[in-house]
Design a protein around this nucleic acid. Structure first.
Lengths: 100, 100
DNA sequence: GTAAGCGTTCGATGTTCGTCGAATATAGGT
DNA sequence: ACCTATATTCGACGAACATCGAACGCTTAC
């Protein structure tokens, strides 16, 4: 994983059922909700009671659903909302996160 | 199943992840989308390539998620959107269905 | 260059899910 | 009464999922 290691799918390849499924897990939903403000956060800033490997798995699901962006910042990792999801599914994220 | 056979959960008991999960299946999403106009439809009016038992299963998932109402109409069955879902999660259904 | 920090990948495990066919139940029509 | 149409329930099946700990790889600091 040198620089661009994270695979982010083309936003048009993301399907609605895929997004809804990604958001249907309470932990993933809370991760997305905590990113609401548009800022970036590190792995460690999430209050999770799950193992690191589990968190990594959930991050991948969110990333593959086009919901988040992962960026390497040295040895740690930053996550933020993926802006294009708004173009792909206008209003969806705002609505869901607003209700979470 | 004499009269009120169908169990519809109290609307406040349905959770957001539950609703999102219910909508994350393509077939279930299409069912909900086809109910968009508020009208009622019978089982047979759905273009499904799945077995009757499978359709029945999906209907139950949607019903348990507070998304639809099931009504017996003699020997057949009518389904329609459950209006209270709008009070429970305002804007959600309109947004999701609008994108489907 | 060696060690530490941090996230990913890899099995493994138990659970949930979508699907089917067969059996069952209920209501209507003959 | 019987038969038909329609929907539900009941196993059963494989696939997908959430979770973990252990092993691995990469980056930075010492």
């Amino acid at each position: 994983m040198t620089q661009d290691a994270y695979h982010h799918p083309a936003i048009d390849d993301v399907t609605l059922p895929e997004v809804l499924h990604a958001l249907s897990d309470p932990l993933r939903l809370s991760i997305v909700a905590s990113l609401r403000d548009g800022g970036a956060r590190g792995w460690g800033e999430f209050e999770t009671d799950v193992a690191a490997s589990t968190l990594s798995h959930h991050m991948k699901v969110l990333r593959m659903a086009g919901l988040i962006l992962n960026r390497r910042e040295g040895t740690r990792c930053q996550v933020s909302l993926r802006p294009e999801i708004e173009d792909r599914f206008p209003g969806l994220l705002a609505t869901v996160v607003g209700l979470a």
